[in-house]
Amino acid sequence: MPDQNPEQIERAVREVLGSLSGDLTTTEISLLGELEALGREVARAKSEIAALRVDDINDRHIPTATDELDAVVEHTATATNEILDVCEGLEKLQTKLPAEHADALGVAVTRIYEACSFQDITGQRITKVVSALKVIEQRVSDVTRRFGTTTENAPAPEPEVAITPETEGRALANGPQLPTAASSQADIDRLLASFD
């Protein structure tokens, strides 16, 4: 019974215990023991969750983590644009240099451009982490609500709505793979060639 409210379980246990009277059979005594154990387990789970101060996770830790990640994206973008500014300046100098040096500078600038694409990849990876944090935030909210460790009169959360991607492009948009799982350009070239 995954959606059963712990408060309801506790109440049900108390009611069953209160209804038992007179001589008890062996089965009833066994059932009584099981119910008492269940009641203790529910109470222990509640106090352990309360002790974890899970509200802090949603109120403080997750917002801080997402803010920090946003700042990482912003700062790397700023730094990357500074690097690109300098590269564009260097390219303008190329025409004033002897051909040999101009070529060497051109090769170096190209390598810097290639390396700067890290900002796009890290940005996409961080976006995936922020999405994961939001899922954790939602799950923590669900747990705290079910075990009654948040404000008593807090409104029930909105029911989770399954988000169905509306297009194939959106459904297949997963962001970068981890390096160990990603296909190389050579793998992709081979795959494309197999269509010819």
Binding site: E114, L172, Q177, F195
Partner: peptide, 28 residues
């Protein structure tokens, strides 16, 4: 950066002319 086979196949079936995976180099 989408480098899964299913992405490349979907792009090819949709009529992509070529497919480059990030990070890429200037020569590619």
């Amino acid at each position: 950066a989408e480098s899964k086979t299913e992405n490349v196949v979907a792009a090819k079936q949709a009529g992509v002319s070529n497919y480059i995976v990030k990070p890429f180099n200037a020569e590619t």
